[in-house]
Computed example of a mutant assay.
Amino acid sequence: MFQRRLGYCFTVSQRLGRALTHRSYTAEAAEDTGDYETLEFLGDAVLGLILGTYLYERYPHCNEGQLSQMRSRLVSEISLAGLARQIDLGDFLLLGRGEESSGGRQKDSLLAAALEAVLAALYLDAGLQRAQEAFLSCFAEAIKRRLASPQGQDYKGLLQQKGLGAFGCVPTYQTVREEGPPHQKTFHVRLSLTPEYDCIGIGPSKKAAGQDAAEQLLRLLRQHDI
């Protein structure tokens, strides 16, 4: 069932079994068949390469910093857990009794780690190209939505409230650059709150770029305890 959702049938089923096994399960099992922790390590690297390639090819006009910023949004724990839920990954995990009773199947940290482990198992079973094809076949649309609306939160609205409360003013947004062909544009939006606080956001639409800029500035304000 899970392989059908993933769109790939493993030639070595033990690889997938290990990728779906949490250490709490092996701790209680009579025989140690291994868990997904080392696969998670490998999966993190495979995921970085797949997403790096995807972003490099989709946004050729973006610089290194901009691409890194987009990738960091995609590999966050919340983002990966959301992808895992899309294919009901939690339903197929092998968990120990304690982890099961504490709601482990819905924990973001556990789901994100398991997704990376599954990707590593797929890579070991079929190679990078097939792993990339399967991953993007499952998640390309979700990735596009994530880039268009980071974490699904209204960062512009949150920043407006913060600006009024802390500085007595609201942020302004200005589109400073558009790049790429009409069907695949990248927008750069400058956000200004005060002379000391401004930044530029990027995204596949003006709205997404504005959200990205607002997210950046909110993070900066938090760092400054504002």
Results as ranks from 00 to 15, higher is better:
residue 66 Q to K: 04
residue 69 Q to F: 13
residue 69 Q to P: 00
residue 71 R to W: 08
residue 72 S to F: 04
residue 73 R to N: 14
residue 74 L to D: 04
residue 74 L to W: 03
residue 76 S to N: 11
residue 76 S to E: 14
residue 76 S to L: 01
residue 79 S to M: 05
residue 80 L to H: 07
residue 81 A to P: 01
residue 81 A to K: 02
residue 83 L to V: 02
residue 84 A to T: 04
residue 85 R to M: 10
residue 85 R to D: 09
residue 85 R to Y: 08
residue 86 Q to A: 13
residue 86 Q to V: 02
residue 87 I to V: 15
residue 87 I to R: 07
residue 88 D to I: 01
residue 89 L to D: 10
residue 90 G to A: 11
residue 92 F to K: 06
residue 92 F to V: 11
residue 93 L to W: 11
residue 93 L to K: 08
residue 94 L to S: 14
residue 95 L to I: 05
residue 96 G to K: 08
residue 97 R to L: 15
residue 97 R to E: 15
residue 98 G to P: 01
residue 99 E to K: 12
residue 99 E to N: 06
residue 101 S to V: 12
residue 101 S to M: 14
residue 102 S to P: 03
residue 103 G to L: 13
residue 103 G to A: 12
residue 103 G to V: 12
residue 104 G to M: 10
residue 104 G to A: 07
residue 104 G to S: 05
residue 105 R to W: 12
residue 106 Q to F: 04
residue 107 K to I: 10
residue 108 D to E: 14
residue 110 L to H: 01
residue 110 L to N: 03
residue 111 L to W: 00
residue 112 A to L: 05
residue 114 A to Y: 01
residue 114 A to D: 01
residue 114 A to M: 02
residue 114 A to F: 00
residue 116 E to V: 00
residue 116 E to Y: 00
residue 118 V to H: 02
residue 118 V to I: 04
residue 120 A to G: 08
residue 120 A to C: 06
residue 120 A to D: 06
residue 120 A to M: 04
residue 120 A to P: 09
residue 121 A to N: 05
residue 122 L to Y: 05
residue 123 Y to W: 10
residue 123 Y to P: 06
residue 123 Y to Q: 05
residue 123 Y to S: 05
residue 124 L to D: 06
residue 125 D to L: 12
residue 125 D to R: 12
residue 126 A to R: 14
residue 126 A to D: 07
residue 127 G to I: 08
residue 128 L to F: 15
residue 130 R to V: 14
residue 130 R to L: 13
residue 131 A to G: 15
residue 131 A to I: 04
residue 131 A to H: 08
residue 131 A to R: 05
residue 133 E to K: 14
residue 133 E to M: 09
residue 135 F to D: 00
